[in-house]
Deep mutational scan, measured.
Amino acid sequence: PDDEWKERLREAEEKNNWKLFEELARKAGVSEEKIEEWKRRWS
């Protein structure tokens, strides 16, 4: 299951679909801290 969400995150990233990325990350149990960090790195 871990690989599956990583794959989906990669797809979201490729499409630059931040909303989807964020949603998937939350569902995968990624901390808000980590998500914010990704946001900063991404923008």
Rank of each mutant, 00 (worst) to 15 (best):
K19C: 10
D3Q: 11
L24A: 10
S43P: 14
W5R: 01
F21Q: 01
R41H: 13
R26D: 01
D2A: 09
A28E: 05
S43K: 12
R8I: 15
W5I: 05
K34M: 14
E37P: 00
P1A: 12
A12L: 11
A28F: 11
L24V: 11
G29M: 01
W42Q: 03
D2F: 11
I35N: 00
R8M: 15
N16C: 07
E13H: 15
E36A: 13
A28G: 07
L9K: 01
V30A: 04
S43F: 14
R26T: 03
K34T: 14
K6Q: 14
K19V: 12
E7H: 07
E23W: 12
S43C: 04
A12I: 06
K34P: 00
E37K: 02
I35L: 11
A12G: 02
F21N: 00
F21H: 01
N16R: 14
W38D: 01
E13I: 15
E22A: 08
L20N: 07
A25H: 01
R8N: 09
L24T: 09
R41G: 13
R8S: 11
L24P: 01
K34R: 10
R41Q: 15
G29I: 00
D2L: 11
R10W: 11
E14Q: 10
G29T: 00
R40E: 12
E36D: 10
K19T: 13
I35G: 00
W5G: 01
E32T: 08
W42T: 03
D2Q: 09
D3W: 10
E7T: 05
L9Q: 02
W18K: 01
N16H: 12
P1S: 12
E23D: 10
N16M: 10
L9R: 01
K19D: 14
K6T: 14
E14R: 12
P1D: 14
L9V: 03
K34L: 15
L20D: 11
E22D: 05
L9M: 11
E33C: 06
V30H: 08
K39D: 01
D3V: 08
K15I: 07
S43Y: 13
K6W: 15
L20Q: 11
D3E: 12
G29W: 00
V30E: 02
N16T: 05
W38S: 03
E4N: 09
E23Q: 08
L20K: 06
W18I: 06
E33W: 07
L9P: 03
A28K: 04
N17P: 01
R26L: 07
E11G: 02
K6C: 15
W18C: 10
W5A: 02
W5S: 02
S31Y: 01
W5E: 04
V30M: 15
P1F: 14
L20G: 09
D2H: 10
E4S: 10
P1Y: 13
E11V: 04
E14P: 02
N16P: 02
R41F: 12
I35K: 00
G29H: 02
N16K: 14
W42G: 02
E11F: 03
